[in-house]
Simulated scan of single mutants.
Amino acid sequence: MSLIPNEAVKIEVNGATVDFFELTKDGVSTYYFDTSKCGPPDPMVNAMSGLRLIKNTNNTLVMINHKAPGGLFAKLEADIAHSVEEVNGFMKITFSSVNAGVDSDLTQIACH
Rank of each mutant, 00 (worst) to 15 (best):
M1C: 06
M1D: 09
L3P: 09
I4M: 03
N6K: 15
A8N: 05
A8K: 03
V9M: 15
V9A: 15
I11F: 11
I11Q: 10
I11T: 07
G15A: 09
A16C: 14
A16E: 13
A16P: 13
A16L: 13
T17L: 14
V18H: 08
D19M: 09
F21S: 05
E22P: 07
T24I: 14
K25L: 12
D26I: 01
D26R: 10
G27Q: 11
G27Y: 09
G27V: 09
V28D: 07
V28I: 15
S29D: 08
T30G: 03
Y31C: 09
F33I: 03
F33C: 07
F33H: 15
D34M: 01
T35L: 10
S36A: 13
S36Q: 11
S36E: 11
C38T: 05
C38F: 06
G39K: 14
P41I: 11
P43T: 03
M44D: 07
M44S: 08
M44R: 04
V45C: 03
V45W: 02
V45G: 01
V45F: 02
A47V: 12
S49A: 15
L51V: 00
R52S: 12
R52T: 10
I54M: 10
I54H: 10
K55C: 05
N56H: 13
T57Q: 12
T60W: 06
L61W: 08
V62K: 06
V62G: 03
V62A: 04
I64G: 02
H66C: 06
K67I: 15
P69M: 06
P69K: 00
P69L: 11
G70I: 06
G71H: 11
G71E: 12
G71D: 13
L72M: 09
L72C: 05
K75Q: 13
E77A: 14
A78W: 02
A78E: 14
D79W: 03
D79Y: 00
I80Q: 04
I80S: 04
A81E: 14
A81D: 14
H82D: 03
S83T: 15
S83E: 12
S83Y: 00
S83W: 00
E85M: 06
E85I: 02
V87K: 01
N88T: 07
F90W: 04
K92I: 00
I93V: 14
F95V: 03
F95D: 02
A100K: 06
A100C: 02
V102S: 07
S104K: 02
D105F: 03
D105C: 04
D105W: 02
L106C: 01
T107C: 00
I109K: 08
I109C: 00
